[in-house]
């Protein structure tokens, strides 16, 4: 996978994860173009898009679009499953997740993604393991806060 973007129906970026290096300007340009292209597609159309030399897989969940750019040899259908797995994880973590959860806790969304994917590849296929790792890390953070008496 080359990158993953989450954006709203209004085209606002909610999360971006790049697994290949690009200058900031290029990232913005790619994001802008992809967001407009995907938003103009009709709901009945397929989830795949050939855009420049990339294969783009996207899926809409409620008001959020999840969009992944994958390599030519990657499995498009499985990428849909990866997106779905990520949504399930978010849902479990936040408890029926909505866009606002991701806006206000964007860092958590990143942490969860980083436990599911690493370097653009799936690292863990068990939902339970991912959530356990996140919970343990959150606990570690909380302990520190109690120690230092800082509320964040």
């Amino acid at each position: 996978m080359q990158f993953m973007l989450l954006f709203s129906r209004q085209g606002k970026l909610r999360l971006q994860k790049w697994y290949t290096a690009h200058p900031d300007k290029t990232k913005k340009k790619i994001t802008r173009e992809l967001v407009t292209t995907i938003l103009t597609r009709k709901p009945k159309m397929c989830s795949f898009l050939e855009w420049r030399d990339l294969k783009v897989v996207y899926k809409r969940y409620a008001s959020l679009y999840f969009c992944c750019a994958i390599e030519q040899t990657d499995n498009e259908l499985l990428t849909l499953e990866i997106i779905h797995r990520y949504v399930e994880l978010l849902d479990k973590y936040f408890g029926s997740v909505c866009e606002l959860d991701i806006i206000f806790n964007f860092e958590k969304a990143y942490f969860i993604l980083d436990e599911l994917l690493l370097g653009g590849e799936v690292q863990e296929t068990s939902k339970k393991t991912v959530l356990k790792a996140i919970a343990a890390q959150d606990l570690l953070q909380e302990d520190e806060q109690v120690e230092q008496g800082i509320q964040d």
């Binding site: 860092e107 942490f111 890390q137 570690l140 953070q141 520190e144 806060q145 964040d152």
Partner: peptide
């Protein structure tokens, strides 16, 4: 601190 590291690496 782990909190710092977590945000720092992100």
């Amino acid at each position: 601190r782990f909190t710092d590291k977590r945000i720092g690496y992100l």
